[in-house]
Design a protein around this nucleic acid. Sequence first.
DNA 1: CGGTATCCCTTTGGATACTG
DNA 2: CAGTATCCAAAGGGATACCG
Lengths: 118, 118
Amino acid sequence: MKSYRRSRSPCPIGRAARLLGDRWVLLILREAFLGADRFEQFVDRLGINRAALTSRLAILLDAGLLEREPPEGKRARYVLTDSAQALIPLYREMAEWGSEHLFEPDEARGAWPESASG
Amino acid sequence: MKSYRRSRSPCPIGRAARLLGDRWVLLILREAFLGADRFEQFVDRLGINRAALTSRLAILLDAGLLEREPPEGKRARYVLTDSAQALIPLYREMAEWGSEHLFEPDEARGAWPESASG
DNA sequence: CGGTATCCCTTTGGATACTG
DNA sequence: CAGTATCCAAAGGGATACCG
């Protein structure tokens, strides 16, 4: 597992890109903002492979965007840290931009599930 | 090559994530914002593999974020479209967030190159 | 300069099974 | 429920060679 705390690009965008330039990371955080905090919830909502989810959760914990509650043991909840909450403006930008530039004018906007549509 | 115009997630974030959830795409756009518009410039500044660059440029052309000048033939320049320019606020957010949450307080912020640091 | 093609290895991903 | 393990196929990535 790569450490994301040690992503040593001197450029803030480069360092952010190392973390956020991953589709699953982006989608997991979206689900977390929408209230998901359980392993199975992410699996169910995103249709993500369990191994892939495990690896992304480790990355997000390492980067300090999620915290486990409780820190050790099973049945954890994954809760957003302040660092992750600080990403909300960026997500708002992403949603606006996506809506304006990646949809036809008459095309319906909705929410997930990713698994049903790609 | 997947078509990014046909990324049919009904969620704007899901659709944006399909495009922006790729480290190279993010970095290529950063370089373009900083003035790069030639194939070799992207290779030199990012240390990106030529095949990887070709594939990402195709994605960005398909998504309407870049345009070729001239449209056909060789010696093309890759110029940012209005859609891509509209991403600047998102990049600004990303830079601010990265600077605040992915660096030590006393750590120096700089720019690329990615190739020299990861 | 602006690519395309090839080789080969590593990573990722889906499916599925298993454990406490 | 919350993962870990395994298998295998597909995609991605670096190095390098080649072409007009």
